[in-house]
Design a binder for these strands. Structure first.
Lengths: 223, 223
DNA sequence: TCAAAAGTGTTTCGAGTACACCCATGG
DNA sequence: CCATGGGTGTACTCGAAACACTTTTGA
């Protein structure tokens, strides 16, 4: 196959901003790096693209290696190419963000990383590279997207209570919502369907369990 | 400077979706290619990054070479990396969209291109590469952005009438707006200030000329 | 005086918001 | 029987949308 003539000395990488809500707290997954010059620093998991790999493919590989999760909502966030962003050379990063439910995820610290941890988005540590900028972009994007799409399904298990749905919104938006108005709007939106089942084992009146009628991205009017 | 170890055979390019509104019509700039295998085909102007150049820098260079315009609103649209998008090899494209006023732009067909033309967005010809996908993304983005930002300033000259402002909205949204409601909202928004001057030479009652109080991106509630 | 676009208010309707009490369960 | 969260309805306010005529100018 003929090649383009120009010589470029630019590497392509993918970075994954992995987000979830656990116990009413909006969290991001960070890894602690081992290699110099960033040993000990925290960053979003990422890495160079392998040949024959798409950016999204690379992100899924990275996602699985850090969390074991194969299914998650994934969306391209943007491409970050500040020339000084990587001290080891010119690396352009295509960043994605991933959303997943906060329950049932077993983090595993592989030998690639010194540590892997969920961090509250409101209390992130200092980040390597330009990951502070990437974090800001991801958080803005998901906040906005909650208002005009149904992405929230990607942050909840198959069935859930209205209270847990509301708490996901509140955690991400960082604001309290009125319970009655929230239920009214979300039930009228047609996004949910009743399962008929009830929550079990709580020390109070059991809540009805709902599911999403569609588990793929759609535009809606909410909030 | 030490280099990352991996060998990648991936080239990075930038493409510019250049948009404007002329005579009430929403248009995109396309170039007609000379080189095989796409000779004669239309596409957005673009090209490989030079070393030491950022994606945005490359886009500005491409923009200037196709239009002569140095100042335009520029925003990253997304990165397109389908492995089959370029038959000459693996090229990942970072696409930007540019917005500029529809008046006073002299297109120049350089020797790089067979032709350079404005095309109505509703009647684009067949496009090379994956530029149809890129076009769709750009158009969706600018439509949405009109509703929650003040970007429209980038599509108008320094002073303009309320009617011409309205016609820009109508051209991009593809829908008619109510004149009285439009004027009410846009005047209440605080985006505009009166210049005190009047339009000249029209065969009807002259309209007042306005200017934007801010010529940089801000979020607002409109539409 | 005619053609053409500029400019101007009011009413109606629906959505958003604020707000407080009873219910079902486990301990 | 008590503590805990689940579940429910109404009233008010404000912004969105619909709608038609008079004014100013050049030809």
């Amino acid at each position: 196959m003929p090649k383009h003539p120009s010589r470029q000395d630019i590497k392509l990488a993918a970075d994954a901003v992995i987000l979830t809500v656990q116990d009413g707290v909006f969290k991001a997954l960070l890894i602690q790096m081992k290699k110099k010059p960033f040993a000990g620093a925290w960053a979003f998991p990422g890495g160079l693209l392998e040949d024959e790999e798409t950016c999204e493919g690379a992100t899924r590989r990275i996602l699985a290696s850090a969390t074991g999760v194969k299914e998650a909502y994934l969306e391209q966030l943007g491409t970050f190419d500040d020339p000084g962003r990587d001290p080891l050379g010119r690396v352009v990063s295509v960043a994605y963000f991933a959303l997943m439910p906060g329950v049932g995820i077993a983090l595993r610290t592989t030998d690639k990383y010194a540590d892997v941890r969920w961090w509250p988005v409101s209390k992130l540590p200092a980040l390597a590279y330009d990951h502070r900028v990437i974090a800001k972009a991801a958080i803005e994007r998901i906040r906005a997207k909650l208002g005009y799409t149904n992405v929230v399904w990607s942050l909840l298990p198959k069935t859930f209570t209205l209270a847990s749905l509301q708490s996901v919104y509140e955690a991400i938006l960082g604001a309290a919502l009125d319970k009655r108005n929230f239920r009214k709007k979300v039930l009228a939106s047609g996004l949910l369907e009743s399962t008929g089942k009830m929550e079990k084992g709580a020390a109070h009146r059991p809540a009805e369990l709902f599911r999403f009628s569609e588990r793929r991205l759609a535009h809606i009017e909410l909030l």
